[in-house]
Simulated scan of single mutants.
Amino acid sequence: MNTRLNVLAMTSAALLLGLAWTGSSLAQQAAPAMPAPELDRVSCTEVDWHQNMMRDYPWVANGCHEAIVVDGKKWARFEAVFQQTNRDGTITSNFKSDRGRSLGDVKLRPGPDQRVLLDGRATRFSDLRRGQVLNFYAPEGMYAFATEPGAPPAEVVQIVEPQPTAQAPVQMAQAQPTTSPRPTTLPATAGPLPIIALGGLLSLLGGITLTMCRRFKTPSA
């Protein structure tokens, strides 16, 4: 008798557990799934760039891949290939267009504890290796980059302004003076006319002299 009661009790408990599990499963299926929050995206043409950003990096508008809006503020996303860590603690990355074309190098000065997302993991800048692809976000109206959109000001990476290249003075080409050899003989510029004139003058003087002599020799009547 006791055995039958125990079996009946165990069977009832199993049925109750099965009904409870079935009800829980049906409730989970009936409940609508909560949509994952999505960030608003706008065109890069709607981003208001900082004037120094446009001055130092004229390609910045073409290098923007997309613009993400976080709390009403736009963040322009860029892709860059890590190049090297410099001796002064700065890093150099080559920014790429959406077609993979090189746009130019940008030098950043990250803090000692700042990290960048690499394959979904936070990685120190000092642990980066050449050739790794990074995402940077430029906040609208600021001369800086961040490693994720909506980052607080303490996590913004400073940009090292490029130094203007000194231009070498342009030297004007000077023509070398040319010296021509002096002629050893005088040029024959005089014609025969002076000689003819001199001969005519001498003939005239000779005629006058003969006339005067004849007058003095003629006896008076």
Rank of each mutant, 00 (worst) to 15 (best):
N6Y: 09
A9H: 05
A20N: 12
S25R: 01
L26A: 13
Q28K: 12
Q29M: 04
A30D: 00
P32V: 09
A33Y: 11
P35V: 12
L39S: 08
V42A: 15
Q51S: 11
M54V: 15
W59M: 09
W59L: 11
N62P: 13
N62D: 04
G63Q: 05
E66R: 15
I68K: 04
I68F: 11
V70R: 07
V70M: 07
A76M: 05
F78D: 02
A80R: 01
F82W: 00
R87M: 09
D88V: 03
T90K: 06
S93N: 06
N94I: 02
S97A: 05
G100H: 00
V106T: 06
L108Q: 04
G111F: 00
F125G: 08
S126I: 13
L128S: 11
V133N: 10
N135E: 13
P139V: 05
P139A: 08
M142L: 14
F145K: 08
T147F: 09
E148D: 04
E155F: 10
V157Q: 02
V160C: 07
P162W: 03
Q163E: 04
A166H: 01
Q167D: 09
V170C: 04
V170R: 03
Q171M: 01
A173Y: 02
Q176A: 08
P177M: 06
P181N: 04
P183K: 09
T184I: 13
T185L: 11
A190Q: 06
A190T: 00
I196V: 07
L202K: 13
L204V: 14
G207S: 10
S220M: 09
